[in-house]
Simulated scan of single mutants.
Amino acid sequence: MKNILVIGGTRFFGRHLVNQLLGRGHKVTIATRGQTPDTFGDRVQRIKVNRRDREAMIKAFANTDYFDLIYDQMCYNLLDIDIANDVFDGNVGRYIMSSTIETYNHLMGLQSNPYKENDFNLSAVDVEQTFPWHEASYMQSRYADGKRQAEAHLYNTSILPAVTVRIGHVIAGREDFTKRLQSYVLAAIEGTSIPTSPAPQPSSFITVRDIVAFLIWLGEQNFIGPINAACEPALALDDILKSVQEICQKPIKTHLSSNAQSQRTPYDYLSPHVMDTGRAKDLGFKFSPILESLPRLVQELLDDLVVEA
């Protein structure tokens, strides 16, 4: 049994991660602001704290036991890393930060091969300490930069034994709060036309089941460093629309976007945006085929929308 802290853990795939950890007999503490209800009952310990507040974090964790493992689902920028360094230095066996495929955004269109973890040098990333990273609008508009700088700062300070998981687009059914896949199911049902680029390019995706399984597996390993997480094959928007049309049994109308840079729909990429998962495979993890899950997710959304109608 491990003593595990999950920062976040009450939304999207985070709650599945907590349930899986509990099912494996681990002692789990969740740290949240306490604003999202959960169904864990007395199976978890709870720490109510603002992840962005350094002094509150230091106070909240001042008397906690050593954590064998920390899953930080709420780290978005280098200021969050500074807080993690201050709070958890010497008090964690392994620190796993959820990162994103969007850390590779600056390479889009510059290379044809899928991105490998070492395709950009984290030690060369300019760390922007004076930026207002904790302002909500800034965090959102600079999401990819924030994650990239968080990773760079994490490894360059070398205080925590860290793994950063660069997660592909998490594709889900009814539990996806972004409603990206749902927007295409709605387009099929309602007969609305969606704008697309002339030739949408592929990107990397992962299911909730696979990212949770991967995070659980990571917690049982001992390596450090960045690692990509994605199912295969990579999917282009056309692949997603095809699956939606087959399940809904209705065509999706499309029209060319008048401005390919600003009027594209979710998952419509002008250049390939695909991660190489060779490191994960070499270390022993096998991702499931994404095309086996996609129809089920579309059907789930369709069923919900039919009931709502």
Rank of each mutant, 00 (worst) to 15 (best):
S204T: 02
D53F: 06
V92C: 14
F120S: 09
P226I: 12
T130S: 15
E300M: 04
T103I: 07
Q201M: 13
Q263I: 03
A199R: 11
D276Y: 05
R166K: 02
R54G: 00
N91I: 11
D86I: 07
I216S: 01
L237N: 06
V165S: 08
H153L: 05
E232K: 12
N85G: 06
S183L: 12
R54Y: 00
N156I: 05
P272M: 03
R46C: 06
L294H: 03
V274K: 03
F120C: 10
P266A: 12
N156C: 13
D176G: 09
T277S: 04
A309E: 11
E55C: 03
V44Y: 00
L79W: 10
P272L: 07
Y269A: 01
D210H: 06
Q129D: 11
L270Y: 01
I227V: 15
S99R: 13
M1Y: 01
G14T: 09
G219P: 05
E220N: 11
V6W: 03
N156R: 14
N156S: 13
A188H: 04
L215F: 14
D82Q: 14
D239N: 14
E128A: 14
P289E: 10
I194C: 10
T32R: 03
I189E: 03
T10A: 06
G14I: 10
S257Y: 03
R52P: 00
L22P: 05
T277F: 02
Q35N: 05
I159T: 12
R180D: 09
V165A: 14
P266F: 07
F12A: 02
P289W: 06
F67A: 09
G93D: 12
K48F: 07
G25K: 12
S197M: 05
L79H: 13
L215C: 08
I216E: 01
Q221K: 15
A162N: 09
A188S: 11
R209V: 04
L305E: 13
Q249L: 01
I96F: 03
T29P: 01
S288E: 13
Q45D: 10
P200L: 14
F12N: 01
P195I: 15
V298P: 02
I211M: 07
G173F: 11
I4M: 08
V165G: 06
V28A: 08
E128R: 15
R264V: 11
I224T: 15
H134K: 12
P37L: 07
H255A: 08
Q129C: 04
H255Q: 04
N259L: 04
Y104L: 09
R33K: 05
V125R: 11
H169Q: 12
G90C: 10
F67T: 07
R166F: 05
V306G: 00
R296C: 05
R166A: 08
P198Y: 11
E151Q: 05
V92W: 04
N228Q: 11
D53H: 09
A230H: 04
